[in-house]
């Protein structure tokens, strides 16, 4: 089992390297000069040249790439062109804030999705199933900003005014000190992500419930609860894990819109700001970070798949 995971891990590292090359080349191709962006239009040519020298902009491209890549490994993300401060200092807090949002949304949507999907499958064709599948279809069809705006209308402006619609933590103070402000962004993400998990869980569970080994377990006299938990659920999990991974990865990138909507001080907002300010260093780091999240969650999904399918970790017939 370990060799397979190690092989996947090695592929992941390769993919990440490929992504880093792409990101670096893409930012090179962007118009504009970082030195100019920092110093502004009025800068003298001497100062520009000095800054270029200081930022190593005159080195060959491959050398700059390697320096940048080396920096990533030791946590030196470079200097923000817009603020002049270290990128790590700028992003540290924001990454934390986004992670809080992501983990909270994941921790709610995954169990809820699995439970509702299983419930739906078990009550196939009855009222509960129709309500669950119907609602999840409607939610899946709505874009995240529509859900977000609807929630804001419902809970903070027009109907009720019980929850804050924007995040207003004083700078330097972590977002989780104001848990009320976290509710709406988290809820929006949960409502976006859960429907997919419910639908996938329902579909795979239905398939598994029809299988020979589930019927056999029932004919062995195994109580229904145990049939579901021990015989059906493990087989339904592996395909669902893939969907969950895609959803989590989407949250890492797609969080941009939601953070923007709620003025949430996370990486999504940082990314929007950085692009507007031509802050190349920050864009690079965030792109790599989001790619890394994609790769890690997909790796986790593969591990779940390997754990639930002994064929992948043991040899064939002997």
């Amino acid at each position: 089992m370990m060799p397979i995971i190690l092989r996947r891990l090695a592929t992941s590292v390769l993919i990440l390297l490929a992504v880093s090359v792409l990101v670096f080349v893409a930012t090179l191709l962007l118009p504009g000069d970082p030195a100019q962006a920092i110093l502004g239009q009025q800068a003298t040519p001497e100062r520009l040249a000095a800054l270029r020298e200081q930022m190593n902009l005159n080195d060959p491209v491959w050398q700059r790439y390697l320096t940048w890549l080396g920096g990533l490994f030791i946590g030196d993300f470079g200097v923000s062109a817009a603020s002049g401060g270290a990128v790590s200092a700028l992003l540290g807090e924001r990454i934390g804030a986004s992670l809080v949002l992501l983990v909270a949304a994941g921790a709610i949507s995954i169990p809820v999705g699995l439970l509702l999907g299983t419930y739906s499958a078990l009550r196939r064709g009855r009222a509960g199933d129709h309500i669950a599948t119907g609602t999840s279809l409607v939610l899946a069809a709505l874009p995240e900003f529509v859900i977000g705006i609807a929630l804001v209308t419902l809970f903070s402006t027009t109907v009720f005014t019980i929850l804050p619609s924007v995040t207003m933590a004083p700078p330097g103070e972590p977002v989780w000190n104001y848990p009320q402000q976290l509710i709406l962004p988290t809820l929006t993400l949960v409502l976006v992500v859960t429907p997919y998990i419910i639908r996938m869980m329902r579909a795979t569970m239905l398939e598994v419930l029809e299988s020979g080994y589930v019927e056999m377990a029932r004919l062995k006299g195994v109580p229904e609860r145990q049939v579901i938990l021990k015989h059906a659920l493990p087989h339904a999990l592996s395909p669902v894990a893939q969907v969950v991974a895609i959803q989590l990865a989407w949250m890492a990138g797609g969080v941009v819109v939601v953070e923007f909507l709620f003025r949430y001080p996370g990486i999504g907002q940082a990314l929007v700001d950085a692009v507007t300010n031509r802050d190349v260093q920050v864009v690079q780091v965030l792109a790599i970070l989001i790619a890394a999240v994609y790769i890690v969650v997909n790796l986790l999904a593969d591990v779940v798949g390997i754990l639930t399918n002994p064929k992948l970790r043991t040899g064939g017939a002997r």
Partner: peptide
């Protein structure tokens, strides 16, 4: 079921739980 009356399925490849 399984105790007093038991069952042997047609296709064991489908009826044995592959993950147990």
């Amino acid at each position: 079921r399984g105790g007093v009356i038991s069952y042997v399925p047609q296709d064991p490849a489908l009826s044995l739980n592959p993950a147990m």
